[in-house]
Design a protein around this nucleic acid. Sequence first.
DNA 1: GTTCAATATTTTGTATTCAGAATTCTCAAC
DNA 2: GTTGAGAATTCTGAATACAAAATATTGAAC
Lengths: 216, 216
Amino acid sequence: MPIERRPLRDQIKREVLGRLRRGDFPAGQNINEGRLAGELGVSRTPLREALIALEIEGLIESQPGKGFRFAPVSPREYQELCPVVAALEALALESSDPAYLAETAPRLLAMATEFDASVASQAEIEERDDEWHDLLLGGCRNERVMDLLTTLKASLRRYVHLLIDDETEISRSAGEHRAIAEALIAGDTDAAVAALKANWTSGTDRMVEKLGEARE
Amino acid sequence: MPIERRPLRDQIKREVLGRLRRGDFPAGQNINEGRLAGELGVSRTPLREALIALEIEGLIESQPGKGFRFAPVSPREYQELCPVVAALEALALESSDPAYLAETAPRLLAMATEFDASVASQAEIEERDDEWHDLLLGGCRNERVMDLLTTLKASLRRYVHLLIDDETEISRSAGEHRAIAEALIAGDTDAAVAALKANWTSGTDRMVEKLGEARE
DNA sequence: GTTCAATATTTTGTATTCAGAATTCTCAAC
DNA sequence: GTTGAGAATTCTGAATACAAAATATTGAAC
């Protein structure tokens, strides 16, 4: 039995990613390596290795001599991130196995419909949305694209909780998901790709507005 | 005067990237941290930090307990990489300032034409091609896209020297560049985007074939 | 001459140490 | 009460130390 031995730096990275997802670390907060290492029960060496990996992924920044901090959020970054995710999800969908799409489309439609009806917590909504997109793109065999999407979405997640605050956002999202699923059922991949891109760009304007308010 | 103080890990990363570009490190070769650190005149700590950054960027792999090695090349990876670069360059071009494109298009055309005529070394050809694409996308203000492209192209560079081996490749590439530039001069961005995507997919088949041979 | 086990060596992964830079604190001067 | 100089402290960046795992080497048995 091949028991997996992951290096400490990977486990630490996972842990920090988990906490980041939970919102434990405010954006922009700087990181005290000694304290965080102590909290995690490890030394600074593997912690720093994990932080450097997260820096490359865009979730952490560093200033020479001043250490690391969790990357601050900005309308600018959100505006940059969305089109990238849109383009890569579009690519992933285009390069998916058609058989997979045909088989999965009904389930996607069901999920979207069910989602529209339900009322759920912030965290649940985010999770459902992620699950839906994961299922949609589960037929993509391009690992590079999928890995990139995983990391880019980790950056995006810092924003969605700012956006999902009312009923209308949920039903809009559900409607867009239904449109994508229906296009797939009709066998019209191009339309599905277009609808998917629309899904990623539709939130941008409102988000930028929200972020403008939040900045005071 | 703001003199830049870059951390050692960044300098090391740059150095390794430079050597990688020069082909000093054979793909698949594993890395002896102690030796390389000694060669560079630094300790293992910042070297490992640099290697971890390069691992996230996809140029290096690591196996627990066995250390790092330069990522091997494979037809599979090349096939995955090309569409990603194509999609992101397309996005970059689409989101470029139209004024920049209008202004730059004639120069792009001139470069492509001149390129076709000249005979040059391997390294020169690669450099010229990079310059051309950099100029083409110089009007894109989406930092995230441009950063991603930089790192993805570093991975791709390990393959191009396998592809550029005859006159025909050069003139094919020059022709495609001309087509893109002409579309831009005509103000037809959509056509330019389509031609750009074609530029990235045209090499794939031949490359996969070449890689198949190289594997024996 | 192989094969295998036992030992020696190297190498990795992590912890610890250390120098210097950045920050905070103290306290006198106004 | 504010300000600023200087000392004390904290923190980062990098080097070194160390234990455990991986690899290489030896040599005995057949």
